[in-house]
Simulated scan of single mutants.
Amino acid sequence: MIDIILHITDREGTQHDVVAPTDMNMNIMEVIRSYELAPEGTIGICGGMAMCASCQCYIESEQTLPEMSDDEDAMLAEAFNTKDNSRLGCQIYLTEEIHGLTITLAPEE
């Protein structure tokens, strides 16, 4: 088992350095929910199906992430507050390659 560190800035602007396991098939949205970094019911509303964009985040560091799926791309095309570095947290799974990833949660729609 290898744990990684993620640097997550919540919607109030507070940065949290969290430890996340890579052996549980978790994604970033689930880490945010488990650490309660967003109010209940405001993130992961669709359960991680790339259908709501409530887990949209801005990637602030240079780790190589998996390529965006067509579903994720389509959801972000309809979402508010998107930027060039927007991704859905539910579509980024925890792997050793993203150790040190820095993200900022997008504002609520």
Rank of each mutant, 00 (worst) to 15 (best):
T102N: 02
I98C: 02
E72H: 06
I45D: 13
N27L: 01
E62C: 08
C46S: 09
I59H: 03
A20N: 12
L94M: 06
M29S: 07
G100F: 03
I59E: 02
E109Q: 09
A20R: 02
H99K: 14
C46D: 10
D3L: 12
I98M: 06
E12W: 01
Y93H: 13
G44D: 08
D17I: 15
P39N: 07
E97Y: 01
C55A: 11
S34E: 15
C55W: 11
D73R: 14
S54C: 09
S69I: 08
I43N: 04
I92P: 06
R11M: 01
K83S: 12
E72Q: 14
R33A: 08
I103E: 02
A77T: 06
M29I: 09
S61V: 09
E62I: 03
N81A: 10
E109H: 11
C52I: 06
N81L: 04
T22L: 11
E40V: 11
D84C: 00
C46H: 09
M26K: 14
V19M: 10
E40W: 06
D73E: 15
M51C: 13
Q91G: 09
E36D: 14
P21T: 12
A50M: 14
S61K: 12
M24L: 15
E97H: 07
Y58C: 09
A38Q: 01
L105A: 01
N25S: 15
I5G: 00
E109I: 00
I92H: 09
T42C: 03
N27I: 01
I59S: 07
M75G: 04
F80Q: 13
S54E: 05
G47V: 04
A79S: 14
C57R: 04
I4M: 07
A74W: 10
D71R: 05
G48S: 10
S86Q: 06
I8P: 03
I45C: 10
